[in-house]
Design a protein around this nucleic acid. Sequence first.
DNA 1: AACTCGGGGCA
DNA 2: TGCCCAGAGTT
Length: 204
Amino acid sequence: MKIFDILKKTYPDARTALNFSNPFELLIATILSAQCTDKRVNEVTRELFKWYRTPEDYLKLGQEELEKQIRSCGFYHNKAKNILETCRILVKEFGGKVPSNIDDLMKLPGVGRKTANVVMSNAFGIPAIGVDTHVFRVSHRLGLSDGKTPERVEEDLMALLPVEMWSLSHHLLIYHGRNICHSRKPQCDRCPVNSLCRYFLTIS
DNA sequence: AACTCGGGGCA
DNA sequence: TGCCCAGAGTT
C-alpha cells in the first residue's frame, strides 16, 4: 500500500511513545494513558515503576496511595480501582502474568480493545492494530475506512494490509496524526500523503 | 450512540 | 477561559 510506504519513509523511527517491553509495565502504562498525554504517563510511570513492578506490589500499595501516585493522569479514581482489580485477576487467574490473547486481556477492567491490542503487539509481538483516536481519525481522512466504530476501522485496516504491517501501521498512523493530521487543523500543506488523501481532495 | 469519568498543559 | 489529551464502562 503506497500510503504506508510513504509514511514508513517519512517516519522511519515511528515507535510507541509508551516504550515498555515488559508486558505488565506496558499494561499499567497503557491503562493510564486513556485521555492523558503520553508525556505525563511516562513521567508518572518512571517514578512508579521504581518501586512497584508486580501485581503483588500494587495490591500492597492499595487504592488511596495508588490514586496519589497517578493523580496527574486524570480519571485517577477509576484508573486506580481498575489497576488494582486487574492485579487481583492477574494473580488469581493468570499466575501473576499478563495474558497474551485479546479475550483474556479484555476481561481485565480498564483494558478495552485498544489497550489489549497494544499490549499484544508491543509486548508479545502478536500482530494487532490498536485503534485510538488518531488511528480512527487518520484512517477516515485517508479513506482507508468508513467504519463507525474502532472495531470496524480495525477490521478494514487488517483487510487492507499484510499481517506483518499491522503493528507498524498503528504507530505510523498515530505518528502522522500527531505530527500532521491533527484533529482540528490538519497541516495538509505539508502532508507527505496529501495526494493520496480523500479528505485533502474534498477541501482542495 | 451518547454520556461520564478529570487533572494538567497550552493558546 | 476553553480546548484537548496513545479510552473504557455504563446506560
